[in-house]
């Protein structure tokens, strides 16, 4: 028995999430396309996936070394930098790609039907693949420095999931806004750049949280940035006992991530029906 489709103004599909599941094949192909296209006509191809994060790590390491930022005893600086750069790169690329994803695929939006949510999801997935590839760099460094992270590394997927939620939530929200207000196309790079300065990529959160002269209010505002929780979590998982997690900050991170995901999905669903008319 074939399915029946009813098209009406404002009709809410009861099978919204089921539809997305049914279209998972397309999700795969969209992600596959982006991965394939990325390095076409480059001479070193997939090596760029390693080279790009390597260059970022090198720059961050150099900045940290130049300013002599605090590094715990017995931990190589490069590992401290790497543990933060990887999740940050994942977030920043996933967030900006998802934000622009609808505009980039506007021809699809106006010519074919499929659950609109697939487009930003697929761009976040592509960034996740990049993250997994670049993770090899971290593993390599751990081996080179004979550094054993211990059992805590099991919690890594949890923090990765948190980063995924933040990127997805904020990305969906901005993507939907971007369809109508192209201003956000210019705001996104700024948010990413600003985020890099207020997230503990080139420095360590310990410096903020343990510093007596910094007022509590500032510490709280600092912890409102959900990426603080993610990056501290990554360092805690990878670098082991030498790093501590600031629990109130961590909880704030989780709450804000969940809220951003809910807000993002809500706003996206609210506006997606008019995408084809305004884009």
């Amino acid at each position: 028995m074939p399915s029946r489709i009813i098209i009406e103004h404002g009709s809410k599909s009861k099978s919204y999430w089921k539809d997305i599941w049914n279209y998972r094949g397309l999700l795969y192909f969209l992600a596959w396309r982006d991965v394939l296209v990325r390095y076409k006509q480059t001479s070193i191809g997939i090596i760029w996936s390693l080279l790009r994060p390597l260059m970022t790590i090198a720059v961050m390491w150099f900045i940290g070394w130049l300013f002599g930022s605090h590094v715990p005893e017995g931990v190589p600086r490069i590992l401290v930098v790497c543990a933060a750069t990887l999740p940050w790169s994942f977030f920043s690329s996933a967030f900006s790609d998802a934000s622009n994803s609808l505009l980039v695929n506007s021809n699809l939006l106006s010519k074919v039907y499929f659950p609109r949510l697939l487009i930003p999801i697929s761009s976040v997935l592509v960034c996740l693949i990049d993250f997994l590839i670049s993770f090899a760099i971290l593993l390599f460094l751990l081996v080179v420095f004979r550094f054993n992270p211990g059992w805590k590394i099991c919690f890594l997927p949890l923090f990765l999931g948190l980063a995924f939620m933040i990127a997805m939530g904020t990305g969906l929200f901005i993507a939907a806004l971007n369809v109508k207000f192209r201003d956000f196309r210019y705001i996104v790079p700024f948010i990413v750049q600003f985020g890099l300065y207020v997230s503990p990529v080139a420095f360590s959160s310990d410096y903020i949280f343990k510093h007596k002269s910094i007022p509590e209010a500032v510490k709280f505002i600092y912890a409102m940035n959900p990426m603080v929780g993610v990056i501290d979590g990554f360092r805690w998982c990878i670098l082991g006992n030498s790093m501590s997690i600031y629990i109130p900050g961590f909880i704030t991170s989780i709450v804000i991530s969940v809220l951003s995901l809910i807000l993002g999905v809500w706003y996206f669903r609210k506006t997606e029906k008019s995408f084809a008319d305004v884009i």
């Binding site: 399915s3 009406e8 103004h9 396309r33 006509q41 021809n107 106006s110 074919v112 008319d277």
Partner: peptide, 29 residues
């Protein structure tokens, strides 16, 4: 692709539409 302002459409079965030649074709692929 777009939603009507009023009225209703009931469709039995799967719909495939070809509104443009090569929608989603990627030149590099």
């Amino acid at each position: 692709i777009t939603e009507p302002t009023n009225g209703r459409v009931t469709i039995e079965g799967r719909v495939a539409s070809l509104l443009e030649v090569g929608t989603g074709f990627h030149p590099e692929l």
